[in-house]
Write a protein that binds this DNA or RNA. Structure first.
Lengths: 139, 139
DNA sequence: ATCCTATATTGGACATTGTCCAAGTCAAGT
DNA sequence: ACTTGACTTGGACAATGTCCAATATAGGAT
C-alpha cells in the first residue's frame, strides 16, 4: 500500500501532513484499527492532528474505496486497508481479535432471486465468530 | 412467539410487567427494532418503563438465545426475535430496511480449516447489502 | 393472605463513538 | 510569492449504551 499516496494524489487529493500520517498508520495488510486507534497512532507522528481530521480522512478513504469499513460488533467501526483483495472476517468473541479469511464459494451467488425481494444486491459481508486459541484455552 | 413468556417462565425468569411488555413488542417474525424503538413502543403500553430496563431485558433475551442481536450498520444494534430459524439479512443501503433471507449453501462449511487459524468457529453472520426497489428507483 | 428476600426496576450520571461547524491554515497552481 | 479553495481544528453536540445506589416487587415460604 506504499503507492496509496500516489494513487490518491492522482485522483486529485490534496496532500497534507495529516493525510499522509493517516495513510501511513493504515499501511499494512492485516490491520483493523478503530478510528480512535488510528488517531492515537497518528498523534505519535503528528501531535497536533485532531480527531475530526482522522474521522474525515477515514471517511474519504472509504468513499474512495481504498479502505473498507468493518462493523464486526457494536463497538467502534474498524478500518481495513486491505481493500483490493476481497475477503471476509473471523472475529474472536472473547478478545475481539480479527483475522482476514477467504471462504470458498460465492455467498452472493447463494442468494436465490426469490430471496432478493426486488433488491439490487451489490455486496455481501460475511463475519465468522468464534474463539481464538488463547480465549478458547482460557474458557 | 406467543409461547415465549411460557418458555422464559420455565427457565426461572421472574415475570414482570416490564418484561412482558418488551416481549410483546418483539412479538412478530419480521421485526428488527433498535433498543430505543423497543423502548418507544413499550412506553405506549407501560408509560413508566425505563430505558435501562429495556436494555437489560434485551440483553437477557439475547443471552437466553430468544432474540438475536443484529449489527447491520454503525448505528444502533437491532433485535431480531426470529431466533429459532437460522437466517441472514439483506439490508438496503439507502433506507436501512432489513429483510430476512435464507441463502442456499452453508457458509460455515465454506471456511476451510486452513483459514480458521485455530479458532473454534461457532457462528457465521451474512449481511447482503444493496438497494431496495424504492431506493433503486429514486437513485 | 401476608411476609421475606432475592431479584428487578428506576433515573440519572457517565462513557464511548461519531458528527458538525465557524474560524483559521495551508497546498499547489498561476 | 500570491491567491484561493480545500483542509484542519477544537469544541460543542448527538446518539447509543453502561453503570450504580436506591427503591419496588414477584413469587416462594409461612
Amino acid at each position: 500500500m506504499s503507492d496509496l499516496l500516489e494513487r490518491l494524489r492522482g485522483r486529485g487529493w490534496r496532500m497534507t501532513a495529516q493525510r499522509r500520517v493517516v495513510a501511513e498508520v493504515l499501511d499494512g495488510e492485516h490491520v483493523h484499527l478503530t478510528a480512535d486507534e488510528v488517531h492515537a497512532r497518528a498523534v505519535v507522528k503528528l501531535p497536533e492532528i485532531s480527531r475530526a481530521t482522522v474521522y474525515n480522512t477515514l471517511g474519504e478513504l472509504v468513499t474512495l474505496g481504498e479502505v473498507i469499513e468493518v462493523t464486526t460488533d457494536k463497538r467502534a467501526k474498524r478500518y481495513d486497508p486491505n481493500a483490493h483483495q476481497p475477503h471476509h472476517h473471523l472475529v474472536c468473541a472473547g478478545c475481539g481479535a480479527i483475522r482476514d479469511v477467504h471462504p470458498s464459494g460465492n455467498p452472493l451467488a447463494d442468494l436465490p432471486d426469490t430471496e432478493r425481494f426486488g433488491f439490487t444486491v451489490s455486496d455481501v459481508e460475511v463475519t465468522y465468530r468464534g474463539l481464538c486459541p488463547d480465549c478458547a484455552a482460557a474458557a
